[in-house]
Amino acid sequence: MAALNTKPNIAAPDDFYADLLAAHEGLSKAESDAFNARIILILSNHVGDREILREALAAAKAQNEEEKRS
């Protein structure tokens, strides 16, 4: 059974993070929102597995649930 990998999986994480911020540099809020939507769709398609995608949605949602409770 495939499962969402929540352990560190990105080599050179600081470099990746810098790339992510660099990609947004100079974009307006609307352009950044559009960029984020495109990157989510691109990565989701790459993952493909519906079960993993469901787990990823739940993992991201957990923060909202926690904020609602507190």
């Binding site: 929102d33 559009a34 939507a37 495109r38 989510i40 769709l41 691109i42 398609n45």
Partner: peptide, 19 residues
């Protein structure tokens, strides 16, 4: 935002067309 992202991507990438 997601609708427009899917449409924008569909021009260049096959994967977005089924969306």
């Amino acid at each position: 935002i997601f609708r427009d992202a899917a449409l924008d991507l569909s021009e260049r990438y096959d994967f977005a067309r089924p969306l």
